[in-house]
């Protein structure tokens, strides 16, 4: 098991954002973490990499206890977070962004070639200042930058946020291709339809707790998921329109 989280609790000040969440990700899997805005998904991810100090519970990456470690350590645990809202280095060139991503990787120039093969667009634009890329290209850069560290576990936070529908498709196709590269992915998303298509398994989070877990195919047909995230009504629903 690559990632194991047990009873994780964390939050901000007195506000508890994650209330005892447990989940696991096996090597080679793509696991989705679904939930509405404010369900605590991002806080959970932040706690996994150390950007947020967990209050209690344990985080094990490849068997090693990592909770409480500073964020910059997580890369040496072969775990890289692609943060929400991309957070690329807007004033640096595409190439420099990638090289920073390979900060701990001595073969960063070789790795950059591999990233360019995966994202030919980035090679074309390597000299360009990253802030001038389109939203989709910036997301590609954020993912490419994370791959520069040769992670075993990639944590993606809302990669489809703010992208045009066509771009969303492309990003999800890229995530699906991570499997070929042997990268394990924990994907945090609000876009349930697309996530359940690429993921092997998924968890559903609500108000800081994991309320549902299962194979992606099963979850896609689960009444709760259908109602809350896929915009469909239950068959056994009384026919009255539900209030959103």
């Amino acid at each position: 098991m690559l990632l194991q989280v047990k009873n994780l609790r964390c939050g901000y000040g007195s506000l508890e954002a994650v209330r005892g969440a447990s989940l696991h990700v096996c090597t080679g899997e793509i696991v989705g973490l679904l939930g509405a805005n404010g369900a605590g998904k991002t806080s959970l991810l932040k706690a996994l990499v150390g950007l947020l100090l967990p209050w209690s519970g344990e985080v094990r990456i490849a068997g090693r206890e990592t909770s409480g470690q500073p964020a910059w350590r997580c890369v040496s645990n072969s775990t890289v977070l692609v943060p929400e809202g991309k957070m690329i280095f807007a004033e640096m060139s595409v190439r420099e962004n990638l090289l920073v991503g390979g900060y701990h990787n001595p073969d960063r120039r070789m790795q950059m070639e591999l990233v360019f093969e995966r994202f030919p667009r980035l090679r074309e634009r390597q000299g360009q200042v990253a802030g001038t890329l389109s939203g989709g290209e910036q997301q590609m850069l954020a993912i490419g930058r994370a791959l520069m560290a040769r992670p075993m576990l990639l944590l993606l936070d809302e990669p489809s946020m703010g992208l045009a529908p066509l771009m969303v498709k492309e990003v999800f196709a890229e995530i699906f291709r991570m499997k070929d590269a042997g990268v394990t992915v924990l994907l945090v998303e609000q876009n349930a339809t697309a996530t359940l298509k690429v993921a092997d398994r998924a968890y559903v989070m609500e108000t800081g707790e994991i309320v549902l877990e299962g194979d992606a195919g099963d979850l896609a047909h689960h009444p709760l998921v259908k109602r809350a995230y896929l915009g469909q009504r239950d068959e056994d629903d009384s026919g009255q329109p539900r209030q959103k």
Binding site: V49, A71, W72, V75, P83, F89, E91, M92, V100
Partner: peptide
């Protein structure tokens, strides 16, 4: 050098630099 890139990335976005494994 690599150090300079790390510094620039800290200037550009400290949290993101941290996530890249840079001890900001």
């Amino acid at each position: 050098s690599r150090v300079g890139r790390a510094l620039k990335s800290i200037h550009d976005g400290e949290k993101a630099a941290n996530s890249m494994g840079i001890n900001t």
